[in-house]
């Protein structure tokens, strides 16, 4: 049974017309920690990836693929890393991105693919001068 409705698919397909470069969704799961949530998350990611041939999916196991998890700084499941062609852009989702978070995931895919953040010139130039690493956590709920 599919998670996305036909209406969802149509809307996302339209959004994905903007995609220019390839995007990889790296999913971390771990059956023992959160089997149900991880399976639902994998299913959702696969349905999203079906909507554009520019999107690929890689499913990893948090316990077995420890080096990759450490490289991405992922320590929770289910997790999704939205990765661009040339580099990790630093975008992660913990938990199933449903409701409001779903549009956030779709937006992230578009921005990573196009490499064009919807930010003002002022913000972009300030970000270019950052002298230290910045870790942003955004706590959200589906509604």
């Amino acid at each position: 049974m599919s998670i996305l409705t036909e209406r969802d698919r149509a809307a996302v397909r339209k959004e994905f017309e903007k995609l220019t470069g390839p995007v990889k969704l790296v999913v971390f799961s771990q059956e023992l920690l959160a089997g149900d949530l991880c399976r639902q998350n994998e299913a959702l990611v696969r349905e999203v990836a079906e909507l554009s041939d520019k999107i690929t999916v890689e499913i990893l196991n948090l316990a077995l693929d420890r080096e990759r998890a450490a490289k991405y700084g992922v320590d929770q499941v289910p997790a999704i890393v939205v990765e661009g062609a040339d580099a990790d852009d630093g975008i992660r989702f913990y938990g199933i991105p449903s409701g409001y978070e779903f549009s956030n995931l779709i937006d992230s895919i578009v921005v990573v693919s196009t490499g064009e953040p919807a930010l003002s010139e002022e913000t972009l130039s300030a970000l270019r001068t950052l002298a230290a690493d910045v870790d942003i956590k955004v706590f959200s709920t589906p509604t």
Partner: peptide, 23 residues
């Protein structure tokens, strides 16, 4: 912002699925 700068990492956390982190 994460795409705009290599220094920025953004993690969106579903609060109800991660009650310990949220606490």
């Amino acid at each position: 912002m994460a795409v705009a700068s290599d220094r920025v990492r953004s993690t969106t956390i579903e609060a109800t699925e991660f009650p310990e982190l949220s606490r």
